[in-house]
């Protein structure tokens, strides 16, 4: 008997169900006026909510819905995305009031019976639609010196580390700098000067790395009025982290390290 395709069985199996969703997207269109000199007020753009009705599949993520809007309905919708698989950290946004990655959030998990609200992450200046100015966020990141600092001569081989030593900071190596944690922090919303969870997490990654020798410097930087002490342990950052990093715990460990260093 020869193997043949059986066309009757192939259609029904594996078909993904479709359903209707409404996206409610916060739009911000910047003014066309030329950019003013630094320090002058930026001319206000127009802000509004746009709603889009879509037919989506059960396997679609919020990012797929945004693509559908941008590619088929309204090409002026602006948002960031790069890898679309939860690694680059470009598409953090406020979806139904929570900071998440659009590429890791399935529409079917969001109660499609109600409109799904999508806003830019809070606390950073909006440039257009869902795109915010990430510069204040990265300025804090640069300030904690997110690179290996060593004093002695370079070894001829790799810098060795035991599994236990690695486990000490393993959680905070997962950060993808999406800013979901920092822009979910109420202290950061009202005072943009606060270093923010992401900077402290990335400092933690080096402070507790046995190969790094810049820990004291980083603790000194974070022992600032705007540093680790501004954390109010509201756990918004831990809830927001799309990588599941225990952000608040890392901040507490940095606080403890500052205290034990002093006494």
């Amino acid at each position: 008997m020869t193997a043949t395709l059986e066309p009757a069985a192939s259609t029904a199996v594996g078909e993904v169900p479709t359903f209707q969703v409404t996206l409610k997207i916060a739009r911000y269109i910047p003014s066309d006026a030329p950019a003013p000199a630094y320090g002058e007020p930026v001319p206000a753009g127009t802000a509004r909510w746009d709603e889009f009705q879509l037919t989506v599949h059960g396997t679609d993520r919020v990012l797929d819905a945004l693509h559908q809007v941008k590619w088929d309905l309204d090409g002026t919708l602006t948002f960031r995305r790069s890898c679309a698989h939860g690694v680059c950290g470009s598409d953090a946004m406020r979806i139904n009031g929570r900071n998440r990655l659009a590429c890791k959030t399935l529409l079917k998990d969001l109660d499609p019976s109600k409109p799904i609200t999508i806003e830019p992450i809070k606390g950073l200046p909006v440039i257009k639609d869902l795109v915010v100015d990430m510069e204040p966020f990265f300025a804090s990141y640069r300030e904690i010196m997110p690179f290996l600092i060593t004093g002695a001569n370079e070894p001829t081989k790799e810098r060795l580390q035991s599994q236990t030593q690695r486990d000490r900071f393993d959680d905070t190596t997962k950060c993808i700098l999406c800013a979901a944690c920092t822009t979910s922090c109420p202290v950061f919303w009202t005072d943009g000067q606060y270093f923010g969870p992401a900077a402290i997490v990335n400092a933690h990654r080096f402070i507790f790395d046995s190969r790094d020798e810049g820990g004291a410097q980083r603790l000194e930087i974070l022992n600032d009025k705007e540093g680790a002490w501004r954390c109010r342990t509201t756990f918004n950052c831990t809830d927001a982290c799309p990588r599941g990093i225990q952000v608040t715990k890392a901040i507490q460990e940095v606080k403890r390290a500052v205290i034990t260093r002093t006494f």
């Binding site: 022992n223 009025k225 705007e226 501004r230 205290i259 002093t262």
Partner: peptide
């Protein structure tokens, strides 16, 4: 751009 963060280190907040 901007005034940047003022460095306010010290053990007061701790």
């Amino acid at each position: 751009p901007g005034p940047g963060r003022r460095v306010t280190r010290g053990n007061v907040e701790m």
